[in-house]
Simulated assay, not measured.
Amino acid sequence: MAIEVRPATRFTDVAAVLGPKRPDANVCWCLSYRIPAKENRALVGTARGEYMKGLCRRKPAPGVLAYDGDEVAGWAAVAPRSETTFATSRKIPHVDDQAVWSVWCVRVRPGHRKQGISHHLVAGAVAFARDHDAPVLEAYPVDNGGERVDPTMAYVGTRALFEAAGFEVAAPTDSVLNGFPRVLMRLDLR
């Protein structure tokens, strides 16, 4: 089947990718970089999912979902950087004052991995940002030099994934994840 990427407006589909097995479990729900740390820590159990449910009702949607036929296969978070904690990060620099968007989480469900879904998700995030008139899209992947990245830490993507989508390294960062440095990569959307 062909992979289709669409805005993440259906909460049940977002929950299939990001939600816990137990509704009251504390999982990220892709909120860690989206909301301030104090608010993020205050949301526990089902409140995290409820927060994401609210985001799915907003415009623009909080990200994009990849579908393999009728089955949701993956998620990518994409939003204006100004609406994320990257806007105030001390570890991820600002290259300029453009109204950039950020893509920071690419997650593929088990059973759909190693099929190129992450490439579809990045392409979908690019299209989504472009459709919302973003001038530039940034990503903050690990620069792993081809080494294996622990699957639980691979959500930020790899430099190679974003290079394949046309992104270029714009700056180093002071952020490290799973022992690998993260780089700031950009794609001009104009």
Rank of each mutant, 00 (worst) to 15 (best):
L177Y: 13
E147I: 02
P36N: 12
V108Q: 09
M1P: 12
A2N: 13
R186M: 10
D174H: 09
Q98M: 08
C30F: 04
D13T: 04
V142H: 02
R186S: 08
A79M: 12
F180H: 15
N40G: 05
L189M: 03
C28M: 04
H119E: 11
A170K: 03
T158K: 03
P20Y: 05
V183M: 06
R130C: 02
K59S: 15
D13P: 02
P36K: 08
A160K: 09
H119I: 09
P110V: 06
A164P: 00
Y33N: 07
P110N: 10
D68A: 13
R190K: 12
Q98G: 03
P7D: 02
P36T: 07
D70A: 12
F180A: 11
L18Y: 02
T152S: 09
G74D: 02
I35W: 07
E147M: 11
A47V: 04
D68F: 08
G49F: 09
V106A: 00
G111V: 09
V17I: 15
A123M: 04
Y67E: 03
G124F: 00
R34V: 08
D131E: 14
G19S: 08
Y67L: 07
D97A: 14
T88S: 12
I117L: 07
A25L: 09
A42L: 12
G111Y: 06
F11S: 05
G179H: 13
L161A: 03
A79W: 05
V156K: 00
R41Q: 15
N26C: 07
M153Q: 14
V5S: 01
V44L: 13
F11N: 06
I35R: 06
Y140W: 05
N26T: 06
Q115Y: 01
I117A: 05
V108E: 10
K21A: 15
L184A: 02
R34S: 10
M185R: 04
D97S: 14
V5C: 01
A154C: 10
Y155F: 11
L55F: 15
V78G: 00
A73H: 09
N40I: 05
R34Q: 10
W75G: 00
A154F: 07
P23A: 15
F180K: 11
R90Y: 06
K38L: 11
G49P: 04
R58V: 06
V14E: 01
V14T: 05
K38E: 15
R6L: 10
D13R: 03
V95I: 14
L31M: 12
R159I: 01
P62L: 06
V64F: 00
V72K: 04
C28A: 07
V183A: 02
A129D: 05
A154Y: 05
G54C: 11
G116F: 09
P23H: 13
P141G: 01
F128T: 00
R58A: 15
Q115R: 15
